[in-house]
Design a protein around this nucleic acid. Sequence first.
DNA 1: ATTATCTTTGCAATCGATTGCATAAGTTAT
DNA 2: ATAACTTATGCAATCGATTGCAAAGATAAT
Lengths: 339, 339
Amino acid sequence: MKKHLEITIHHLAKELKISASTVSRALNDNDRISEETRKRVQQKAIEMGYRPNVLAANLRSKRSMTIGVVVPRIDRYFFSSAISGIEDYAWTKGFSVIISQSNDLLIKEANCIRTLYNNRVDGLIISISMQTDDDKHLRLFSDRNIPILFFDRFCPTIKSDRILVDDFNSGYKITTHLIERGCKRIAHIAGPELLNIYKDRKDGYLKALNDVGIPIPEGYLEVTGLTKEEGKQAFSRLMSLPNPPDGVFCGNDTTALSALEYCQKYQLRVPEDVALVGFSDEPFSSAVTPSLSTVKQPGYEMGFLAAQKIIHRIENINSVIPFEEIVLPAQLIIRNSSI
Amino acid sequence: MKKHLEITIHHLAKELKISASTVSRALNDNDRISEETRKRVQQKAIEMGYRPNVLAANLRSKRSMTIGVVVPRIDRYFFSSAISGIEDYAWTKGFSVIISQSNDLLIKEANCIRTLYNNRVDGLIISISMQTDDDKHLRLFSDRNIPILFFDRFCPTIKSDRILVDDFNSGYKITTHLIERGCKRIAHIAGPELLNIYKDRKDGYLKALNDVGIPIPEGYLEVTGLTKEEGKQAFSRLMSLPNPPDGVFCGNDTTALSALEYCQKYQLRVPEDVALVGFSDEPFSSAVTPSLSTVKQPGYEMGFLAAQKIIHRIENINSVIPFEEIVLPAQLIIRNSSI
DNA sequence: ATTATCTTTGCAATCGATTGCATAAGTTAT
DNA sequence: ATAACTTATGCAATCGATTGCAAAGATAAT
């Protein structure tokens, strides 16, 4: 079973009676090697089943051809589709993708980043955790000038590229939509302010109401962790108010679903009694009844673009490229829960 | 900005006036180094901000502390939750996870595997593509005695560990459930026979009907790619039969959802006119109306277990551990679409 | 014929850690 | 005091590629 001795460039060199350096250059299609030798070497490499040892090459060249990705949870659709986009592009450029998840914990996030650093990834694509209120762990990369790219959720104190969704305008559009369909009392279930995305959604909501002079009653702004359970509680508090809302902008689809389930349980009609809008267009959102109005974030495209940007930066690591903040538009999808 | 010269064990050695080998051993808590020296070295390492270069260590030790994962698509919930489980366990053992997706294409799968091999991953966890009818690319690993572990979808000609879901019994249980609720004409929308999972589900279906002596009318067994579109077409063909089914076991939840949408469009009542059962318990399945009966596969747990098994094998690469086929039970979840 | 130039290849150091073997120092037994 | 072990540390080779510099050979220019 141990018949497979690994073939190295030295074996090829000996076989071809040339030096290892020539073999190395030939395999990399270096101009300095004659066309003829290159052909011979490449032919022999195939013949002998040569497989480059990426580790050795990376050690020497100080590039790993690998990008690290950190997301809160891999199994959330938005993130898995972003990873899918990252992987698809990276693959075309010969980069591998190491993933890790922070589980929305700062400590875990810091550990992931340290591990990725130790593995000498060439760049880091990250969507920070809900707890990240500190940038010390990120400095491991930024201080060493290793490219970081934030997507969706970013750390404002680190200078770097960012690919974001236009949460402010989305929040504004959602709220305006609710106003236009006739809602008079519009509440919002927000997420932790620490994260730009939730703050922006909330600000969009506030601005939209303010622009048309609708005041926000006491208790109409819930701030939660946006889990299924917290969503249910928050919605229940809203509906127990003396003057409950007739339209609720939920910070994500999960809480919107909680709200929907609450309505089913207590015989509230959606959207007649209360209109609902979520955020993210999870796979379930179009399938529920009534189907859920929401905002579709281009996860795959963001990931693809993120990979393009960071690989471009990696490949031009010595040029000064100004940092970019790309804000992608998101699409308001009006479905039956707010029609 | 270039203030960060990388600290190596040689820098530590010089600083402490000892040899690099001692530093290396001290950092790895080797017995041969005195307790006192170990402390001093570890202290200094922290003080100087030393970060081990995993690449160098791996090159020498011929282990990469990395496992490669290949799945058809990262953004499918079953796979992303499995990856989540893999990553969670691997992380506790200091392993990194490189992921790649085959997009259900054999060629892409082969390329992914080659890349993972070149990166010298210590093991491969894979769920094969729908097209994989050949094992040449997998031999790259198996011939070299590098651990492979299949989960969910496997290649029967490669000897290795497997972690599977009990698709046969699940198919059997689903069909029996439909029989018991009173369905007389039960159809099945199956996936490609090439994959064990779809063949087993179908066989369970056939066996269940056979056991109670129900014959299967002409045209009641559709074989498709199980996409949304193909599902819709297959279901439409079924319902256009002179004697359409009153119960359909759909090969996955996606096609079950297609069926549901078809029923809504053509005013068929579910489950009164036709009962539906899917497979996989996608996030949308519990949320749709009527909620979808299905089989819940333990994705996260499978991934976690897969990581445990393969890392155990990696850590005992020189012992002969017999290959294991673990078949996990899956849970039939009866919801409104077939109650 | 001689020098200059270009092309093609090889030598040897290097990346940063690991590890078998040798050695020095310390301890115990004879 | 010497042999026989232990214990702690260092030397130097090694993993498999990359790369600056030198050199050899071929060709062109003077």
